Simulated assay, not measured.
Amino acid sequence: MPDITPAPRRRPLWRLFLMPVLLLVAAAAWSAFWFFAASQVEVKADAWRAQEAKSGRVYDCAKRSVAGFPFRLEISCSGASVTLRSQTAEQAASRAAPVTAKLGEILVVAQIYDPKKVIAEFTAPATLSDRGGPASMVVNWSKARSSVVGLPDIPQRASIVFDDPAIDRVNAAVQTSLARAKLVELHGRRAEGSALDRPVIETVLKIQGGSVQEVHPLLAPPFDADVRAMLSGLKDFSPKPWPERFREIAAAGGRVEIVQSRIAQGDLVAVAAGTLGLSANGRIDGELQMTVAGIEKVIPALGIEKMLEEGVPQATLDRVAPGVRSQDVSNLLGALDRAIPGLGKVVKQNANVGVAAGINALGKESVLEGKKARAFPLRFVDGAVFLGPLKVAQIPPLY
């Protein structure tokens, strides 16, 4: 029998090219999608900058670029700057010259498959100047990053973290330290269940190894702080100057509820909770219930001795000792020195002991973290901060 072998069937050649062609089409489609998304980033960024400019915050980049193909969007802003107008009560009232901040670079990153989550990194240093003059402050850090979830709609949560931040005042060629910290964190999110038109914001502020000069002696030694608060009174998240924002919060009866706070500084440990609001003058009003261990350690920092040396203001005496004249106190201390040299100085130096005893008498005994403590109110009256009858600070208006 003849050997009959069937001829092999030829496979269609198009099947060999099907997968490569499909991959090529998919790559082309993905590339087109990425470049379209990159172009929309530019459009959204310009629209956001225009909105912020109307609110007195002008952002600019010397050079802007978009990279990260194929799975990320990386927006780089080199030579970044922001000019702030009417962002404080003083600026809004006096139409003062704007403040300009500049820093090296901002890098914003978003995954192409999760564009609502944005992560940013900031390159130090940043400089601040006003009235168009040279830099008056320099801000440095070892690492700074932030994240926002929910863009471009209403943000769901946001955070910013600085490692080793440092703020220096610049005077000619001399830099003076103003603030230092090992770590500063600020986190915020919209509270679950809060309405979109009346959002409640949960915030957490953490400071490790913080130190602030030229504000109050109590803030100069290193301290740690952990503050958790709830902010109400917001109407929306649309861009607007901060004084206008604070005015809206006050009109809506907004409050900051300090849910929990703890400050530790050497032997001093303080916890506080309460509610703060804004007065008709745009100043802080409210009261915090404090429990403090080691308060006697910080009484000298309140400056009682210096107050006596410079003379006790009549307004202070009117609050704590009605009917007593300021000149009478000064004359008494002088008479003590004339009668027995040095006696007036002893009275001044021991004034802190009397103040500590007075503050202890205001509150009640308590225990904080296993230490003896006192519990008492810290009052805010139209921006003035009172520890018992003693005014310890004055906070400027917010609008």
Rank of each mutant, 00 (worst) to 15 (best):
A179Q: 00
P222Q: 08
Q175H: 11
V259W: 00
P221T: 09
K206G: 08
R255W: 01
A191H: 05
V170F: 00
S211D: 05
W242F: 11
A252K: 11
M230H: 12
P217E: 06
K235N: 14
V259N: 13
L234S: 07
P239T: 09
D224T: 11
G254V: 10
G193R: 10
V259C: 03
A251R: 13
H187F: 09
L183F: 13
Q213I: 02
A220T: 13
R180S: 05
P222E: 08
K235D: 15
A181V: 02
K182G: 14
A229R: 14
Q265K: 12
A229L: 07
G193I: 01
A264N: 14
A251C: 01
R228Q: 14
Q213H: 04
E244V: 14
I201P: 01
R245L: 15
A264G: 13
V170N: 02
A181G: 04
E202S: 13
V215E: 02
K240Y: 04
A173T: 11
R247P: 01
D267H: 09
Q208R: 12
P239V: 07
D236R: 00
G210I: 02
N171Y: 04
S194H: 05
V174N: 06
V170G: 01
L234K: 03
A225N: 07
G188I: 09
S211C: 09
R198W: 04
A179G: 09
V200E: 15
V174E: 11
A220L: 14
M230F: 12
P239S: 10
S177W: 00
P221L: 03
A225Q: 06
S194V: 07
H187Q: 10
V174M: 05
G193L: 07
I201W: 09
M230P: 00
A252Y: 00
V184I: 15
P199Y: 05
G253M: 04
P199R: 02
K235I: 05
S177G: 04
R247N: 09
P221H: 03
H216G: 07
P222S: 09
R228F: 06
R190T: 08
L234G: 07
M230T: 11
V200L: 12
K240D: 04
P243D: 04
F237G: 03
L231C: 01
R255G: 02
Q265E: 12
R245G: 06
V256L: 15
